[in-house]
Each structure stands twice: as structure tokens, then as C-alpha cells.
């Protein structure tokens, strides 16, 4: 029993490392292709597509996150007479952590899943093989444009997320929490610095890259059959999210110490 259990754990750890190795190789290969000029028309097309796809959910998520953040902080801060700092606290939390991470998580669920489903179904219907036979490198043709557009589009979405989150916070603060509009905005100006936002944007570039590479990798290695694609898609979202949370910790250490 115990041995079997340990064996199982051991196997999945090994598989994890093996997959990790392949992901890194794929990432390096994609970065290698970046030296050549990418197809900007395709990248732009992808970006619009990805952006339009995820903007509504990102907006909705962040609106309510900004609102709930303000409810919680305002409640506590007013007790200690610190209502003048609510705006700043919400804005900084939003810019450094909440907007980048939540946007990335939504992005992983929406875009990462779509990438895996698309590339996975190309894999199982031999379209990837057809690409290779037509002397076209699948990494250059499929992975690179997705990598670039995710890494560029996620920061754009994050800017929207910051704005809408701050607006949500502002609405709650001024209508329900009894904080004046001036005090909310003033505290943002007092406490926040530009790096609170730009650091978050740097994070989202990394997260966008993670979502794209994991999405493509899971798609390119999808097992045969329609159910294989489904499995790969779920796996893609879960793996991307875990890597987003882990890398977020280290990026925060790097960016905000």
C-alpha cells in the first residue's frame, strides 16, 4: 500500500520534472525564433482576438475586486481613524498584486484554454504534421505569435484592470463607506508611486508568457482523441495558474524589495 502510494508520487514528480524540461526547451526554442522578424500582422490579429475575448471578464472581475477591497479596508481603517489612506492602500494592492494576478488567472482560464484547445485539435487531426511536412516550423508559426501577443496583451488588460478596480473602489468608498472623493483620490496621490503600477505590468508580461508557453505545450503534446484535447485544456489552465501564483511570489520579491 504505502510503497504503491510512494511509487505513484515518485512517478508524478518525475513526470513533472520531465514536462518541466520540455516546457523550458519549448520556451527557449520560441525565444530563439524571436530573433527573426515575427509576422506582425498575425501578432496584431492575435492580440485583438485575445484582448476582446478576455476584456469583459477582466473588467467584471476587477470591478468587484476593487469594490470588495474597499469595503474591507474602509471598515477596518475607519475604526483606527485611518480613512485617509484607504484609496492609497486599495490602489497599491491593486497595482502590485491583485490586478496582475487576477487578470492573469482570468487570462489563463480564457486564453490559455483556447490556445490549448486550438493547437491540441490541430495536433490530433495531423495539422501540426501537415505544417511540418510543408517545411514550416510549428514553433515559429504557432507558438511565437501567441507568445508575443500574450506577453504584450496581458499588460494592456492589466492597465484596464487597474483603472476599473480603482473606479470600483472609488464608487464604494464615496457612496457607502463615507469617505470623501477628495480624500480617496488624495491618498492615492500621497502613497502610490509609478512603480506600483509598472511593476505589476512587468509581472503580467511574464504571466502572459507563461500562459502562452504552457498553453502551446499542452496543445502540442495533447494525447490522441477528442477527450485528450479536453484533458490537455484543463491541464493547461491548472498548470498556468499554479505557475502564475508561484512566479508572482518571486517576482514580488524581485520587484518590490
Amino acid at each position: 500500500m504505502v510503497v504503491r502510494f510512494l511509487e505513484k508520487i515518485g512517478r508524478s514528480v518525475i513526470r513533472g520534472f520531465e514536462n518541466g524540461g520540455w516546457v523550458i526547451i519549448l520556451a527557449l526554442e520560441a525565444l530563439g525564433h524571436l530573433r527573426r522578424r515575427p509576422n506582425w500582422r498575425q501578432v496584431l490579429h492575435q492580440m485583438v482576438h485575445l484582448g476582446v475575448d478576455s476584456l469583459p471578464i477582466v473588467m467584471l472581475t476587477m470591478l468587484f475586486t476593487g469594490m470588495v477591497m474597499t469595503v474591507q479596508t474602509a471598515h477596518e481603517f475607519i475604526r483606527y481613524g485611518a480613512q485617509a489612506s484607504v484609496g492609497g492602500v486599495v490602489f497599491i494592492a491593486m497595482g502590485r498584486e491583485l490586478a496582475p494576478v487576477l487578470t492573469a488567472v482570468v487570462f489563463a482560464g480564457r486564453v490559455g484554454a483556447a490556445i490549448t484547445a486550438e493547437i491540441g485539435s490541430m495536433k490530433v487531426t495531423e495539422q501540426i504534421d501537415a505544417l511540418r511536412v510543408m517545411a514550416t516550423n510549428p514553433v515559429a508559426y504557432l507558438v511565437v505569435p501567441r507568445l508575443i501577443s500574450c506577453a504584450l496583451m496581458l499588460p494592456v488588460l492589466c492597465i484596464f484592470a487597474n483603472v476599473i478596480g480603482t473606479v470600483g473602489g472609488y464608487l464604494v468608498a464615496t457612496t457607502f463607506a463615507g469617505i470623501s472623493s477628495f480624500s480617496y483620490l488624495h491618498s492615492i496621490k500621497m502613497f502610490a508611486v509609478i512603480s506600483d503600477v509598472t511593476g505589476g505590468l512587468v509581472k503580467t508580461m511574464v504571466f502572459g508568457g507563461i500562459v502562452a508557453i504552457i498553453g502551446c505545450h499542452k496543445g502540442l503534446t495533447a494525447p490522441e482523441g477528442a477527450e485528450g484535447v479536453g484533458k490537455a485544456t484543463t491541464g493547461s489552465v491548472v498548470t498556468s495558474m499554479i505557475l502564475i501564483f508561484i512566479s508572482n511570489y518571486f517576482l514580488s520579491l524581485l520587484l518590490y524589495r
Binding site: 485539435s121 490541430m122 487531426t125 495531423e126 495539422q127 504534421d129 501537415a130
Partner: peptide
């Protein structure tokens, strides 16, 4: 290809 493999 056996199953055509057109880019869909």
C-alpha cells in the same frame, strides 16, 4: 494525409 489534415 490519410485524413486530409487541412488547416481548418
Amino acid at each position: 494525409f490519410q485524413y486530409s489534415a487541412l488547416f481548418d
